[in-house]
């Protein structure tokens, strides 16, 4: 099983070399144009986020009365005040809690969803069609009607006010979204790969570890990114299951700054919202390079 390693960069270079110098200039011009379009459109996309960040540096009183993008007066007060958190628990704690939930969820989803996806995507077994349809059906029922029965289960297990209801489902491949995602990627892989591996004497488990998992990396990365971000952003289940302020997450902390009928700390809310974007942005920036063409190989060594 020797499959060719290629790099997109090398092919691009090869084709570029053959072109003349004038062509080279138009190519550069075109690249510049592409940058301008991408940046321009990106700014449009980012405008709301930029507004959020800039407003987080405005004094609380003028956030809504002077909605311009550039603050006339800058203040870090919102960050200082916001960070203090609630009821004596600082946002540092909330960030740590959110990070813990997100990391545990990522691990769970990576392990169990890829296992289920391998079974559905590659193996043949009895009742496969039935299980597969059931797997899909579970995400078609709106969440709100299963909430109460699920809450009953967790409360019988005495898991209310713990992270189990938030993390355990991820270790039981509860997110059909990721199972289907990985199934699609696995099915996109040429079957000759595992056929030749079978001939070489690999068991199905070995195929999973040695062939499927390495080739599944782009899907695993996507799963990791999404799971992290979605667990991070999830508000409803955190709100339902967590009551102890020491267990609160970033999203719960942010929502707690907000009370439409009372006095919302908008400055703190915007500051902490902006801050809460930081870890997930870094995670994304760090992981997205796995999608860069030319770094990894497209086949096996």
């Amino acid at each position: 099983m020797n499959i060719k390693t290629t790099s997109a960069d090398s092919s691009a270079n090869a084709s570029e070399m053959s072109r003349s110098r004038t062509a080279h200039r138009t190519v550069r011009l075109r690249a510049l144009l592409k940058h301008i379009v991408i940046i321009g459109f990106g700014l449009l996309m980012l405008y709301p986020v930029l507004w959020l960040i800039s407003s987080s540096f405005k004094p609380n009183q003028i956030i809504f009365s002077s909605p311009g993008l550039i603050p006339q007066t800058w203040t870090f007060e919102n960050y200082v005040n916001g960070w203090k958190g609630l009821q004596g628990v600082s946002f540092g704690r909330f960030f740590a809690n959110s990070a813990f939930i997100s990391v545990m969820s990522v691990l769970g989803n990576l392990v169990t969803c890829s296992m289920a996806a391998y079974a559905f995507g590659r193996l043949n077994f009895r009742f496969k069609g039935l299980w597969f349809s059931l797997m899909l059906v579970t995400i078609m029922l709106p969440y709100h009607v299963v909430l109460v029965p699920q809450y009953v289960i967790y409360s019988k297990l005495e898991w209310i006010n713990t992270y189990f209801p938030l993390i355990l489902p991820k270790w039981l491949a509860h997110d059909s979204f990721f199972i289907l995602l990985m199934v699609q990627f696995i099915r996109g892989l040429p079957k000759e790969l595992d056929e030749s591996a079978t001939i070489d004497g690999c068991s199905q488990r070995q195929i999973y570890f040695r062939i499927i998992l390495p080739l599944l990396v782009p899907a695993l990365i996507s799963t990791a990114i999404f799971t992290f971000i979605w667990s991070w952003d999830d508000f409803f289940s955190q709100m339902i299951y967590l009551s102890d302020i020491n267990l609160f997450t970033v999203q719960l902390g942010i929502r707690s700054l907000f009370d439409p009928s009372g006095q919302s700390d908008w400055g703190g809310l915007l500051a902490m919202s902006a801050l809460s974007l930081l870890p997930i942005t870094v995670i994304f920036l760090a992981f997205q390079r796995y999608f860069l063409e030319g770094i990894a190989t497209t086949g096996l060594k």
Binding site: L147, Y151, F236
Partner: peptide
């Protein structure tokens, strides 16, 4: 007394869930 505080946006969802499950 264990104080449990819920953001106003979710208070009644949480209360109803707890009442419905007897907790």
């Amino acid at each position: 007394v264990m104080g449990e505080f819920a953001p106003s946006t979710g208070y009644f969802d949480k209360l109803n869930t707890q009442l419905a499950s007897g907790t």
